[in-house]
């Protein structure tokens, strides 16, 4: 056997710690730039329409993943959607408990391919279910930076009933 000797003493076992500062820039890209500038300046969601398979992708993207067509037709999309799936996260990024849990959802928009992952909010104790209608709540215009957190959360749509 290759390993003749193994340490069997806990007190003699040795380890070393290491880390590196990992830093990157991420380019939003052609479609990403238009999506986030529009979100910041006009407070609306932008999609791109595929002329070939006639689908509209939200958020806007530069190419169709179905038919590989370049997407150049930008169209605004209604900012209320439907809860496609949801979860309550009881654990944060460092593995620590979250109380109350953060409610996260994948939200789809009528007639569109794609959707957005975001937080669900509303009155304290508000509960959500798959199929609920929700609407986008934006940060104040002055606080928006052109990123996904320009959206505060999604809340139950006005006039929506289960």
């Amino acid at each position: 056997m290759g390993l003749i000797q193994k340490s069997s003493s806990n007190q003699e076992l040795r380890h070393y710690r290491g880390n590196i500062p990992v830093g990157n820039l991420y380019t939003a890209g052609i479609a990403g730039d238009r999506f986030f500038v529009d979100l910041r300046d006009k407070g609306r969601l932008l999609g791109t329409r595929c002329p070939s398979c006639e689908r509209t992708f939200v958020p806007a993207r530069h190419f169709c993943e179905e038919c590989f067509t370049r997407l150049e037709e930008y169209v605004p999309v209604p900012s209320s959607g439907t809860v496609h799936s949801l979860t309550a996260a009881h654990v944060d990024l460092d593995g620590k408990p979250l109380d109350p849990p953060h409610v996260l959802a994948f939200i789809t928009f009528e007639g569109c391919a794609g959707g957005l992952v975001h937080r669900l909010g509303g009155a304290p104790g508000q509960s959500f279910r798959i199929g609920d209608r929700v609407e986008m709540v934006l940060k104040d215009r002055k606080k928006r930076t052109g990123g996904i957190n320009d959206i505060e959360h999604f809340r139950p749509a006005k006039g929506s009933r289960r």
């Binding site: 939003a28 990403g32 958020p59 799936s85 949801l86 654990v91 953060h102 957005l116 798959i130």
Partner: peptide, 20 residues
């Protein structure tokens, strides 16, 4: 750009998938 800035534990993806 789209997901990481939410700052959540990414295992929420499993919760979303299980729900659906």
């Amino acid at each position: 750009v789209l997901n990481r800035p939410l700052g959540e534990n990414p295992l929420y993806v499993a919760g979303l998938e299980m729900s659906r």
